[in-house]
Amino acid sequence: MRRTKQLQDCGRNWRGRISLTSLIQTLAVAEFLNFHHAANALGVTQSSVSTRIKGLEDVLEIPLFERRHRGVRLTEAGRKFVAEVSASIEQLDHAVRTAGAVSHGFEGSIGIGLQSPIASGFLFDLRQRFRTSYPTIEQAIIEGRSSEIVALVRDGKLDVAFVAGAVRAPDCHTRQLWSERMVIALPADHLLSGRQSIVWLDVADEAFLIRHDGMGPQIFDHVVRRISECDQLPHIRRCDVGRDTLMGMVAAGDGITLTTEAMTHISFPGIVFRSIADETEPARFSAVWSPYNRSPTLKLLLDIATEMGRSA
Rank of each mutant, 00 (worst) to 15 (best):
E261P: 10
D189K: 05
M247Y: 13
D231I: 00
A277Q: 13
I110N: 02
G121L: 01
R145Y: 00
Q232N: 10
R168V: 11
L23F: 09
H104T: 14
D155P: 01
F124S: 14
Q91D: 14
Q232M: 12
S290I: 08
Q196G: 07
I142R: 05
E66T: 10
A312F: 13
L302D: 14
G55D: 09
K299H: 14
V203E: 05
D189C: 02
V203T: 03
P63K: 15
I276S: 08
G121D: 03
S290E: 04
H173R: 11
R168A: 06
S228E: 15
D155G: 12
K157I: 04
E281I: 02
D221C: 06
A312T: 14
Q128M: 00
I227E: 03
V49Q: 00
G108F: 07
S286M: 07
E307R: 04
I137L: 03
S120R: 05
E138A: 11
R211V: 03
K54G: 04
R225I: 13
G111A: 12
E307Q: 12
F130P: 04
S267I: 12
D303R: 08
N40D: 12
V272M: 08
L23K: 10
V59Q: 09
R52A: 05
L114W: 05
T75I: 04
V59M: 12
I184E: 01
G214V: 07
D278K: 10
V199D: 04
Y134M: 02
R73L: 10
S193Y: 05
C239P: 06
I141M: 04
A305M: 08
R310C: 11
